[in-house]
Nucleic acid binder design. Structure first.
Length: 258
DNA sequence: ATGCCGTGGAAACCACGA
């Protein structure tokens, strides 16, 4: 079973790239972030034509998340991160797919920091830490995946010293990620490639992709029930080199069937 | 050191991203 996460940065502007990637990489499940489209402008027909059954939570202009599956209709569990009914940003969707609970998330960027956007990020992170404890109490395999907007360690940043005051790398944000992981989650890509430089995001300008000036901010967190099932994983870097591409590259893992 | 690029929406610029 192959599961992918991809921050598409606009699902309609990205549709040709998305469809080509789905065909070439052929994930069984794809978690998408930054749809940048309201519910009614999600390209449902094209996604279904590509062989995927989608659920999504759109929003006009910003945010928006989706789960696509070609191994059975996702059974939606949550379409918002619990803990704040006032939060109107579409950043979270959770479903059961083929016996696995999958949480697809788009954690706030948080810049500029400090400031209200950074406070929102820390608050969102705190809510995620609370909800993830409930997820860990489930007696089933669980995956949290998406754009966490956090580089967990210095290894995950091309120039760490330049990022220490940025909302993606500030000590309190890194601490929040490590606290979350310490609840009992495995950073799947880091487990597969300990000590290796792996990036999932490259800025559009300054030739960041060509210079390999990247960040690792798209992650897979797995609960203990999946520890023995992680077979493989990687970043589809070639997609970042395409025309009209997202600034993120897709990331994927492969799980052994039970 | 920096939104220099890219997307979406509204309006021919602005908000926002990381």
């Amino acid at each position: 079973m192959k599961i992918a996460t991809y921050n598409v940065n606009g699902i309609n502007g990205r549709l040709p790239v998305l469809l080509r990637w789905l065909k070439e990489s052929a994930p069984d499940v794809a978690c998408l972030q930054e749809l940048k489209a309201p519910h009614e402008k999600f390209p449902e027909a094209q996604i279904r034509d590509a062989g995927y059954e989608p659920i999504w939570h759109g929003q006009k202009s910003w945010n928006g998340v989706a789960i696509l599956s070609r191994i059975g209709q996702p059974e939606e569990i949550n379409r918002a991160l619990p803990g704040d009914p006032e939060d109107s940003q579409s950043r979270y969707i959770e479903a059961n797919v083929n016996g696995i609970r999958i949480a697809c998330l788009y954690l706030p960027n948080g810049n500029p920091a400090p400031g209200p956007k950074f406070d929102y990020k820390l608050g969102w992170f705190n809510r995620l830490q609370l909800h993830s404890k409930d997820l860990l109490n489930l007696d089933m395999p669980v995956i949290m995946t998406g754009d966490f907007n956090v580089m967990p360690t210095e290894l995950d940043v091309y120039k760490p010293e330049r990022w220490v005051k940025d909302a993606l790398f500030r000590p309190e944000v890194r601490a929040a990620f490590h606290e979350l992981a310490a609840q009992g989650w495995t950073d799947a890509i880091r487990k597969l490639y300990p000590g290796e430089v792996i990036y999932t995001f490259f800025d559009y300008f300054r030739n960041a992709y060509e210079r390999n000036a990247g960040l690792r901010i798209d992650h897979f967190l797995l609960n203990k029930k999946l520890d023995g099932r992680l077979l493989n994983g990687g970043v589809d870097l070639y997609v970042r080199g395409w025309e009209k591409t997202s600034d993120h590259a897709p990331v994927w893992i492969e799980l052994a069937e039970i």
